[in-house]
Amino acid sequence: MSEAVGEMICEGEFEEFRDPLLKLRGVTPEFAALLKEAGYFTIESIATEVPHFLFQRIGERMGFSLDKAEALIRDARSKLDIRILSARELYEEELRRKTIPTGSKGLDEILGGGIRTQEITEVCGSYACGKTELVYTTAVLAPKALGGDVLILDTEATLSVSRIRQIAKARELDPDEAISPIHLRRVPSSSDLIATLETAHKFIKERNIRYLAIDSFVSPFRREYPGRELLCPRQQKLNYAIGLLIKFARAYDMAVLVTNQVLATPVAQYTTTRPEFLRPPIGGYVMAYGANNRIYLQETDKPNVSIATLIDSSYLPRQSRTIKITERGIEDAG
């Protein structure tokens, strides 16, 4: 082999190593740039996409079409060895999943070990019941538990790094080291949230993000789509956003936690005592079907003490534990 040919092969291999999109059949450097412009930076981002969404975002530039979108996704899936698993293989995969401790052994117990990778965990409740505190506590504990970084998306502009440092210090961790693997972004609108998720593949891959928390997930949709007449478009966008989270959780072996607000229903108190019926989580069935585990935090008459109830799970029974908010974040109450 001549030196010139050898150099060309090495250069081609280096390009593929530097840009994984070039491993896909028919993807040139120019088309790879087009994919990145649309937010597709990794093979996973292509493999988990829906063909008509991919075509919608790329358009007909450079001769792209819906058929080519379907072929590109098939090729990406083949590169990732996506296939049908036997029950034994799936069970072994489930055993390999990791969990993030919540700070409360009782809450970990009803969640089957904590906030689990490849799943979406929803935490809902009224204000001051501990939802954001759970985000802070798990953000501090996640890097050690999962061996990767944390990304927090804040839709309410209430995130406090000072509080995260306080929790780390109370848990005898170095505050500077504790916040080093935590990345934060404020997302003021539902469109910004969706755009951030659509283009997050590169950041997730480069920074090895293993834990994504959104506080609060449904809040921007609730603000921007008021009234029954806007319920349909709101739920469609919400469902699309949840679909993106499911893709992230599975493609990157991530744990995903979303907090959610509740709806006041004064009449319900006369017909039921279950917290999720008294003040149901917002988002309707879209949220109910999207989350693997749903935790409801119900405040008590004691300061900083809440009852955490697993109100729904795809594989765990309904249980409750009492938690409290301390300098260390979330802990067992008594």
Rank of each mutant, 00 (worst) to 15 (best):
E3F: 09
G6W: 07
E7V: 09
F17Q: 09
D19Q: 12
L22Q: 01
L24N: 00
V27F: 03
G39K: 07
F41I: 09
E44G: 08
S45I: 05
T48G: 12
E49P: 07
H52Q: 12
F53W: 10
R57N: 11
I58G: 04
E60Q: 14
K68V: 12
R83Y: 07
S86L: 07
I100G: 00
I100E: 00
P101K: 00
T102C: 03
G103S: 05
G106L: 03
I110M: 10
A142E: 00
P143Y: 02
K144S: 10
A145L: 11
L146V: 02
I152C: 08
L153K: 01
D154Y: 09
A157T: 12
A157R: 14
I164V: 15
A168K: 00
E172A: 08
I179F: 01
R185A: 15
P188E: 09
S190D: 10
I194T: 12
A195M: 00
Y211C: 03
A213G: 04
R222P: 06
Y225A: 07
R228Y: 12
P233R: 12
P233E: 14
L238H: 06
I242Y: 15
L244C: 09
L245P: 01
D253T: 04
N260C: 07
V267L: 14
Y270W: 15
T272H: 07
P275W: 15
F277Q: 13
L278H: 10
P280T: 12
V286D: 04
Y289G: 06
Y289C: 08
I295V: 15
L297M: 05
E299M: 12
V305K: 04
I311D: 01
D312Q: 13
S313V: 04
S314C: 08
R318D: 04
S320T: 03
I323S: 00
A333Q: 12
